[in-house]
Amino acid sequence: MSAPFRIDLRDVSTFPTRRDEAWRRSDLRRALPNPVEPAPDLARPSEGGPFAAVRAEETTFANGRLPDGGVFARLRLTDAPHRLRFVTSAEQGGWQAGVDVVVPAGVAATLLETYEGQGGYVGSVLLSFSLEAGASLERIVLMDEPSEAVSISASTVALGASARFAQTVVATGARLQRHETHLMHPGEAVTVRMDGLYLLSEARHADLTTVVVHEGGGGTSQVCKGVVTDRARAVFQGQIVVKPGADGTDARMRHDALLLSDTAEVDAKPELEIYADDVSCAHGNTVGALDDEALFYIASRGVPEAQARALLMQGFIGEVAERIAHEGAREVLAAFAAKRLEALT
């Protein structure tokens, strides 16, 4: 089965390079030529963070440490939303942490996961999700980090029968920022949503990588949107594998990116590998500039050009937030994206 790299920040030989296909477009060894020293301890940040408006339980790693000094958390989620925060403040140095998340049978959970910080730190998190039969999880990830940071978040997801897993990752990039998800889809009425949004400026780099392996039928739906400007670089790698016998699979993948400058770059690698017969799969991928004809249409109705561009871009990215079920989280993300978009243009 597909799995994330086991990265040990103290040992550069464990850092993937361009020679590793899954990391070909995000060369970690090049970003980190030397072993990473541990970041100093950090005072406990105050509660809240970007999703402070949502009433929730909270687990916070501060420079990779839990309040008791540990680096590994086990979460057993309930119907109440839960904030999982990775807060870093370090000019250099790094941390590694691990989280096991269990959603018990019948529970409908919401996880609000945020990556926040200051400085040129290195953060690496390995998460493991396990949804029991009939459990449902909506996972909202916001990676809003400084331009000097290196940040890697890798997850594996295992699903019980009739589980529902929905993920939305919003990334604004960093020196190197990567969010990676490996999901084993057992079929059996399981549904999966695997969405993403990246909004990149300056020389930022964001990499959204997903691997969904259908062992059985069932649905997977993926919508990833991105807007990239300046010299920023986005990587989208979306892989859906439909194994032999996974009949009845319904998999849909879309990736659409807007390039606002000639020096920005988007590397898109959508992959559908189908080894079963009775499946319904579709994927679409576009990278381009704003549609001049649409801009003229909007302007011809009286909207000034700058406002027309903003309207078109809001519409372009809007679908990602709209697909979020949790109303409070949806509002936070929509507002965040709108503000970020404004800064991009």
Binding site: I298, G302, P304, A308, L311, G315, F316, G318
Partner: peptide, 30 residues
Amino acid sequence: DQRAAKGVFLSFQYPMEIPGVPALTFVRTA
């Protein structure tokens, strides 16, 4: 946009689709 504000309106042979912008929002913005 300034011609439109002066009162010019061109009805397109093939009106554009604007995904993600509700018709109501579009018209009110205009």
